[in-house]
Computed example of a mutant assay.
Amino acid sequence: MLRIAVQSKGRLYEETMFLLEEAGIKLNKAKRTLLLSAKDFPVEVLFLRDDDIPQSVANGVADVGIVGENEYVEKKQNAQLIKRLGFSKCRLSLAIPKDEDYRGLCWFQGKTIATSYPSILRTFLEKNAIKADLHVISGSVEIAPGIGLADAIFDIVSSGSTLISNQLKEVEVVMQSEALLIAGNKLTEDKKAILDELIFRFNAIQAAAGKKYILLNAPKDKLDEITEVLPGMKSPTVTPLAEEGWCSIQSVIEEKRFWEVIGKLKSLGAEGILVIPIEKMIL
């Protein structure tokens, strides 16, 4: 049995639960408890505060964990980074009152900065030869300047709306963050095998993200041009049709290029274009 530590609430919790469900891990959750087992896969999920996950994995309370990169870097625990998961993206940034005239990092010289991430901030300030006082706060960092506790803050930023509502502006991005899969250093061979299967499933989900499966009919004399538009994973699948001079083509396209590709296909004579979502993709 592999024990996975995950955040107990918030956006990272919700996106982690979605990932596990997509990976076929259905939890026995008749009622919410600290520890839940899966129905058809040898894992159990331990719900913790996000800042407790790195230590719990490092000391063996959990075998692996899904945690924000910000907490992983801040806590500096002896746990391996196994995989970047690509969701719950945010950044750690310095922000100051919106009416301040900001002309560079020298603004922070001698200032007081409120933060929940003193280790990351201290490293950044030392690297840039900035001497500032750190005021460590466990939550609601953004209110510190408004109530006179600090001159600036260093905190997580996603959309920036929280900064705006507190009359702050983001002036320096210190690091980017996303969800990580981390593991302890003493996994048994059985647990490593379960983790390998879990990573295989996560990879299949990630490979399908942002991609569409496309089927279309096209004139054979345009096949080479259409193939250039639809490179797919290796090359499009081409099948002759009963109608002379026509073929059916199947491929995978990036969703971000969807309308660009569709426009080119139509101009090359493609017809009957069918687009299908992809849930998993085994490479």
Rank of each mutant, 00 (worst) to 15 (best):
S158A: 13
A79G: 08
A58Q: 01
T162R: 15
A23L: 09
L195Q: 08
A270V: 04
T239C: 04
H135Q: 13
E69F: 05
L223H: 01
E74Y: 02
K29M: 13
G272A: 11
N166I: 04
G232E: 01
V275Q: 05
D40T: 12
K220H: 03
S158C: 09
E244R: 12
D52T: 09
G148K: 07
A38E: 02
E74G: 00
C90G: 14
L283T: 14
K234T: 15
K29V: 03
A38C: 04
L163W: 09
V64S: 11
I4D: 05
Q7Y: 04
C106A: 15
P42R: 04
E244F: 02
S177G: 07
I130T: 07
A129D: 09
T123F: 00
Q176V: 02
L283I: 14
E126N: 15
L125D: 02
K127C: 09
F258S: 10
V61H: 04
I156S: 12
N217W: 09
K39N: 14
P219N: 03
I4N: 01
G184R: 05
L34F: 13
Q176Y: 14
K31D: 12
E142S: 11
L12D: 06
Y102C: 09
I253W: 05
P97V: 08
K31S: 15
L92W: 10
I130A: 01
K256D: 06
A209I: 02
F47Y: 13
A129I: 03
A204D: 04
S248W: 10
G184Y: 03
A152E: 08
I226S: 00
D151R: 10
L94Y: 02
V61L: 12
P97F: 09
K280V: 08
S8T: 13
R257C: 02
I137N: 05
V45H: 03
K211F: 02
L36D: 13
A193P: 06
N78R: 11
V57H: 00
A179N: 07
D155V: 11
G86M: 06
S248N: 12
S116C: 11
A152L: 06
T33S: 14
R257S: 13
L274M: 14
I53Y: 09
G245K: 04
P118H: 03
V275H: 05
R49Q: 14
T123R: 11
V275S: 13
I130N: 03
L180S: 08
I130G: 01
I214W: 08
I205C: 00
A183T: 04
T112N: 07
I156G: 00
V73D: 12
A114M: 11
P42Y: 06
K29T: 12
I199N: 01
